[in-house]
Amino acid sequence: MAYVISKNRNYTKTHEWCLTADHVCLVGISDYAQSELGDIVLVDFKVSVGQEVKAGDVIATIEAVKTVSDVYAPVSGTIKEINSKLADDPSVVNQDAYGDGWLLKISAANYSECDALLKPDEYENYISSSH
């Protein structure tokens, strides 16, 4: 199925995206990831605001009707905000993975971590080569 790769952010091999603005990293999952998961019915956050995380830590578990997948912190830092709207309507992640379907914000300990992630074209190559 067709998917979109937003050009203004970086990606991980585990399909998170990371968009840095005003010293804060906005984190979500890629359109490819949401389309692979199918209808998302629950986003279970494993962290709370103020908590320190390391890159690679599980920050949320996303449950779709038939599948379940962990979401990992793309960068290290402190959790600044969690998208509380997802509790009522997690399908927003399906509908708008790069916009209203964002998961959380991290005050990055080191912003260069976000720059070191996969660029959009690298992520695109990564997805097409892994199939």
Binding site: G38, D39, V65, K66, N94
Partner: peptide, 9 residues
């Protein structure tokens, strides 16, 4: 597994 509108639909 499903079509474009998804399992729930």
């Amino acid at each position: 597994l499903h079509y474009q509108k998804g399992i729930i639909y």
